[in-house]
């Protein structure tokens, strides 16, 4: 089922992934869930062992002392990454609101990294391409949210 839960972005009616820092335990299972979901085999062992160097997750867990939380792409209404992208690799789906990126088109100029105010676009060092969250197109609940053992990530409309 393809994103049946997502409504068009008009009126911000879009589910997004939000963090709850008071219950994030810094386990980074969200990152692992993301890596597995975006691996060819979708198997945790294969995702890590058959791919070198280690693939990058599309969310970023920050840790500072006891504080931790995941920062996820907001699939912004006015996506700074898209506006900055010089190759046209980034596009916002008018239907789902998902801000997607086409790695084929990406030229690794890092303009999106410079522009995204959430700092959630990473470099995929090996390929010199930017990697960003695609909200797990094709899933009802993004993999990171599903992987979180402590409900520190929620997928909801705000």
């Amino acid at each position: 089922m393809r994103r049946a839960t997502l409504k068009p972005p008009e009126g911000n009616g879009m589910k997004r992934v939000y963090q709850k820092e008071d219950v994030c335990i810094g386990c980074r299972l969200c990152e692992i869930g993301c890596i597995v979901e975006h691996s060819p085999a979708k198997d945790v062992v294969k995702a890590f062992r058959n791919v070198s160097p280690r693939p990058e997750p599309r969310n970023i867990v920050e840790e500072r002392g006891p504080l931790s939380f995941s920062v996820n792409c907001r699939h912004c209404d006015e996506p700074a990454c898209l506006h900055a992208c010089i190759s046209g690799a980034i596009a916002k789906d008018p239907l789902t609101g998902i801000v997607g990126q086409d790695p084929e088109k990406c030229v690794g100029c890092w303009s999106c990294i410079m522009a995204c105010p959430f700092g959630v676009i990473r470099k995929n060092g090996a390929q010199s391409k930017a990697v960003k969250c695609d909200l797990c197109a094709g899933r009802t609940i993004p993999a990171c949210v599903e992987a979180c053992p402590n409900r520190a990530l929620v997928f909801e409309e705000r």
């Binding site: 008071d22 219950v23 994030c24 335990i25 810094g26 002392g65 006891p66 931790s68 402590n150 409900r151 520190a152």
Partner: peptide, 18 residues
């Protein structure tokens, strides 16, 4: 498991809602 502890890093492991 974040139960018998007041270490803020560990105590977060209990989400009151859960």
């Amino acid at each position: 498991w974040g139960i018998a502890t007041n270490d803020p890093f560990l105590a977060k492991r209990i989400n009151p809602e859960i």
